[in-house]
Amino acid sequence: MPTILRTIHWTVLAGAGDPVALITAAVEPTDFSITSASPTSIVIDVPRAMLKNRWGATITGTLTPGTKGTDIEWVVDGLGNKHYEHMVTIGEGMPDGSLDDHGIPDAAAKVALKVFGRKEIRHLANVLDFGEYVYAIGVGALGGKMGIAALTDRRLIFLEKSIGSENVVEFSLASIGALSLGKKMGGETLTITHSGTSATITGMGHGQGDAISRKFRELKEQPTTTAIPTVAAPADPIAQIERLAALRDKGVLSEDEFQAQKTQLLGSM
């Protein structure tokens, strides 16, 4: 049976601490284990657990300097449909404020998301790209399935409620011709006109569809500007060696592994 690959983006914010050490601490109380770690990569093993109805998986993270801190591109390789759930499990062990929250808490605080919990809000962050920002959020039904509707600076996303679900419907801002707000006995409706077709999210709470449609109009009215590319600063070899020493002291790296990587980093100076 072929495995499934899912890519997930995290950003550990500058000043939060050493990303590898934070992730190591987050994994420790789980039944996951770190099989290798360095300043630029980390591999986590998720064992199969029959009682938890969970297939085994391998999670590989690639760490690179980013504009807000350290960007991590995770690739979850495994069977089943718990790829996102694995990352939620690890994320729950990360200190509050250590990860880029993409503006989700602020957007969620403005509306009543009674049918969604902490894990499901964290799940939304799993499907966002580096630096993507959520302006408005709501809860409704699309195609008969309940989910979160989130307007970001790049797209409108509809994510099914279940963490196990991997069904994400998205509409790029450029493809959306209009967002039309309606009201019914069951709540607000939001009709998305895009690429010559339409889709309607129904049963949204009071003000949720309105907030999304208002922000969409603001974004469409903003003048287009040419983005100026930024160049990430090169990693500091001394800081990387300090991270390696911390991992050696925690037992994640052996003395031989530490010395080998230290030699390599010194040679790059």
Rank of each mutant, 00 (worst) to 15 (best):
I4A: 13
I4E: 08
L5Q: 12
T7F: 08
T7P: 03
W10Q: 10
W10S: 05
G15D: 08
P19T: 00
A21Y: 02
A21H: 05
I23S: 02
I23V: 03
A25E: 02
A25T: 00
E28M: 10
T30H: 06
D31P: 02
S33L: 08
I34N: 09
S36H: 12
S38G: 15
S38W: 02
S41G: 14
R48K: 15
K52V: 00
K52A: 06
N53I: 00
A57H: 07
T64F: 02
T64L: 04
G66P: 01
G66W: 03
T67E: 05
G69C: 04
L79C: 13
G80S: 09
M87F: 06
V88I: 08
P95Y: 07
S98L: 01
D100L: 05
D101L: 14
G103R: 04
I104C: 12
P105M: 01
A108R: 07
L113F: 10
K114I: 01
K114P: 11
K114S: 13
L124Q: 10
N126H: 11
D129K: 14
F130N: 12
V134R: 04
I137P: 13
V139M: 10
G143A: 07
L151V: 03
F158D: 04
L159S: 14
E170L: 14
I176F: 05
I176P: 06
I176M: 06
G182W: 03
K184C: 06
M185Q: 09
T189S: 14
I192W: 04
S195P: 15
A199W: 04
T200C: 11
T200S: 08
I201F: 12
G205E: 04
G207C: 09
G209V: 00
R214Q: 12
R217P: 00
K220L: 06
Q222S: 13
P223F: 10
T224I: 03
T225G: 05
T230H: 08
V231R: 06
A232I: 02
A233I: 02
P234V: 00
P237C: 14
I238P: 01
A239G: 12
E242S: 13
E242P: 03
A245P: 00
A246W: 02
D249M: 09
K250P: 00
V252H: 07
S254F: 04
D256A: 15
Q261V: 02
Q264G: 10
S268A: 14
M269N: 12
M269L: 11
